[in-house]
Each structure stands twice: as C-alpha cells, then as structure tokens.
Amino acid sequence: MELRAENVSRRFFRNSGQANYFYAVKDAALLLTSGSLTEITGRSGSGKSTLLNILAGLLEPTEGRVFLDRVDLYSMADGPRSELRSRCIGVVPQGQTGLHSLTVLENVKLPCLLYGEKLSDASALELLEKVGIADLKDVYPNELSGGEMRRLAIARALVKKPAILLADEPTGDLDDENTQKILRLLRQEADEGTAVLLVTHEREAAAYADRLYRMDGGILAEASAQ
C-alpha cells in the first residue's frame, strides 16, 4: 500500500483578520511506500504536524489531494474515511494522548473496540511488551510519565497492524535507550512491509531512514538520500 500527497497546501486564517491568512503547508508532495521509512525534520512551527494530519485524513487540505493507493481520501465522506483510517493508517500523535477513562491496556485496544473488533488481551500485551510498558497495563494514563504515554500511543498505533504508520515525534519524551528501542521498532515495522513516516528532531533517526525530508516554513524538500 502507498500513501501519496499531491501538491497539498493548508491555509489557516490568522485570528487578527479575515483576509490575513498564511500557509502552514505549501505545495507539499510526498510518497510513502510499503517497506520504507521516510523521515521529516524541521523547526517547530514549520508545518510538519499539519502535513501529517493531512496525510492521516484528519485535516482537509485547502489545495491538493491525498491518495491511499487509488482512493482520493478527501473525496470520501467523513464516515468511510474514518473507517479507512482505522483500518489502514496508524497515527502516533504529538503530545500526551491516552484517554483518561481507559486503562493502558484498554487504550491500546481502543482502535479495535471502536469498531467492535475482537482483540485478545494477549496480543495487546505483546505490543505493550514490545514498547516496554507491559507492567503498566492496568494503570490509568494520569499515572504515566510522558515517555510511557508516548510508548502507549505507539502501541495503540500498531495494534491493527496498519499498512501506513504516521508518527509525530514519537521519541519526544524518551531517554536515549528507549529512543533507540522505538526507532528500531519503527525500522522493523518498515522492514515487515509498513510504509512509515517519522517526524522527528532526533539526529540519530536519520540512520534508520530510507529517505529524508526537511520542512521549512511550510515547504517540504528532500534533504539527502541514503
């Protein structure tokens, strides 16, 4: 499976006035293919998360189109698009994103629960094992550290074995050891056939990437290939 962005732009209005808008993302083209890990770096505020949300089908671009294989994501209604996202796209969002009324284990199973799919506790636990927070399975998110919460989000994004994985600064709050662990995990996912997008600040991440992009003021540009 592949995810392709064709000249997508996203305009936002500034709060100050009507005609006063700016591009958070401008004319970005990107292809994520099965088995490859693509990395985007860039300063804070350069538009990385906006692009990632557009790719995830969460934020409609003001111009351009996003294709999942042959399907134009934004030509679909919200319902089917959400269902498609649930099936094919795993997202590790920025920030702390555990649902407070669910335990760690339930949070990881959430994408399955949402569509009434069965998932054994064992396979969810296996994922928690992989990201190293299995012993916290019955804990509620408000008791987790930032790094543990981030790993919870990674496990949750992987739970339905998505063809596309979009990770927005997944190692943000992690120590070196865990950062390496997660980067290796993402690499392993790519090797197993997933199309992985990694938005990050980590310098050592480049070693794991197949392709490297830089984002600057909403403009996406290829940096250097490996």
């Binding site: 995830a56 969460l58 919200d78 319902g79 698009r81 959400s82 269902e83 996202r85 649930s86 099936r87 997202v91 969002p93 994103t97 555990g98 649902l99 407070h100 959430l110 994408p111 949402l114 569509y115 949750r156």
Partner: peptide, 16 residues
C-alpha cells in the same frame, strides 16, 4: 476536545 481528537485519530468518525 483533546479526548475527541484522540478518538478521531484512532478512527472514530464525527458521527461516532
């Protein structure tokens, strides 16, 4: 808002 955004990310539609 954040809770709803998380649900959206894991695949919930607006209608859901």
């Amino acid at each position: 808002k954040k809770e709803f955004a998380i649900l959206r990310i894991v695949g919930a539609s607006r209608q859901m």
